[in-house]
Amino acid sequence: MEGEPIIRISGLGKDYLTAAGSVPALQDISLAIYPGEFVAIMGPSGSGKSTFMNLLGCLDVPSGGAYSLNGTDVRTLDRDQLAQLRNAVIGFVFQGFNLLPRANLIDNVALPLVYAGVGKADRVRRAQEMLDKVGLGKYGASRPNQISGGQQQRVAIARALINRPRLILADEPTGNLDTRTSQEIMSLFTALNRDEGITVILVTHEADIASYASRLVRFIDGHLAHDGAVDHEMHGSVGAASSPRKGDGTSVRGEDAAPTAASPRNPR
């Protein structure tokens, strides 16, 4: 275990208030995620994955429990401080890409830098670099609706990366993409995790997408049902393990455990 965890959660819960009363979407989640981990979150629809990601991303407030991100207890921060924390530490990648439709790609990618107070010339230069990195360097002046879904997700990743985050949160980033494009996107995440040590947490409901990760967290009905190293033969063993303990010994970094996008183990 190397140093402080980037995410430490204990007893985290989230209840939604609806017309029908209070709905517990997450209950008593405790875990720690360390810098450099690549975590896949799985679970049936409605099991609380997105709720969990929103809490991790400080986009929503938990109903109970403690959460510290990057060593900061987020409960002590106000709205604007949270915004700055997100800006500095987290890169978000959403299922629906969430690009600004009217802005061109350069401006989309550079947006976090606007709120980080970076000057215009720097913004444009770094945004161009990021677009180059995700292979879209030529499209800087295009609008999001002029490129394909896979390309849009690359732009979103470029935007997530531009302020050099320590953590990337991706909620079903490949949910709207075909298999081949999904693989490309996953390769990108893998490279970022492997080469730059960025912690990646991603939600997916596809086992082959999850297999890119090194650690698997599984939710069922708002409970942490499984937390352990990715079992590359897991297709049959869904939900078998049940260890809602903290990430004891499950933090795998690099080496053999990392399922780099090497082997064609996608049966599709």
Partner: peptide, 10 residues
């Protein structure tokens, strides 16, 4: 989106 990626209220 703006708030998520770091826009403050002001």
């Amino acid at each position: 989106i703006r708030i998520a990626i770091g826009a403050r209220s002001r």
